[in-house]
């Protein structure tokens, strides 16, 4: 377990039941589609070390149950999350309609600064689409979210969603907008960056990179 990384980010995957949250996580971790998928009861986990803008970041991902009824339980997992994938199903308007409630939960329970990326999943089922790209991207703009349409089946944009979220958090750390040392930031230093921190501050200052969103 001797992993070295600069940062550890706590991520959430939230959204209504059946939108493909666990499948997105599985695709991101295992690089394949989860065929025989159970539904998540409570919470499941995944982790992966990624390289973003020259930094190694360990993502600790909490994949939550989607049923409304479980919200009182899953809410307790929001604390200290740095990023979230907010997932809906492009073939189900109902899952889209509940986005606002999920987002409120994330911002009030995790942190107002939580970096959220909206994921319109099941992009491969375009003929059955009930939510247009335009409509969802407007919602994303109004709520200051990043936005991607993803497919856990084909893997399209899955890696991008996680990396984009991680990159934005790193940029916010660099610009000082996020303070990793604040309690409940959802960010921890890894061994690698602790070593760097002992060096003079100027040496580790990195100019914020354009995130390309």
């Amino acid at each position: 377990m001797a992993e070295t990384y600069d940062f550890l980010f706590k991520f959430l995957v939230i959204g209504s039941a059946g939108t493909g949250k666990s499948c997105l996580l599985h695709q991101f971790i295992e690089n394949k589609f989860k065929q025989d998928s159970n539904h998540t009861i409570g919470v499941e986990f995944g982790s992966r070390v990624v390289n973003v803008g020259g930094k190694t970041v360990k993502l600790q991902i909490w994949d939550t149950a989607g049923q409304e009824r479980f919200r009182s339980v899953t809410r307790s997992y929001y604390r200290g999350a740095a990023g979230a994938l907010l997932v809906y199903d492009i073939t189900s308007r109902e899952t889209y309609n509940s986005l606002a409630a999920w987002l409120t939960d994330a911002r009030t329970l995790a942190s107002p600064n939580i970096v959220v990326i909206l994921c319109g999943n099941k992009k491969d089922l375009d003929p059955e689409r009930e939510v247009t790209f335009l409509e969802a991207s407007r919602f994303a703009q109004e709520n200051e979210l990043m936005f991607l349409e993803t497919s856990a089946l084909t893997g399209e944009n899955v890696e991008e969603a996680f990396l984009k979220c991680a990159r934005t958090i790193l940029n916010k750390i660099d610009s000082g907008e996020l303070d990793p040392e604040r309690m409940g930031s959802g960010i921890q230093y890894g061994d690698a960056s602790l070593r760097q921190l002992r060096q003079p501050r100027s040496a580790q200052a990195v100019a914020p990179q354009p995130c390309g969103c």
Binding site: A17, G18, Q35, D36, S37, N38, H39, Q67, E68, E94
Partner: peptide, 17 residues
């Protein structure tokens, strides 16, 4: 309706193997 829909969805995800 949501609950009935969810039953349908979850049955397909119960011991799928």
């Amino acid at each position: 309706e949501a609950s009935l829909e969810l039953i349908k969805l979850d049955i397909s995800r119960t011991f799928p193997n």
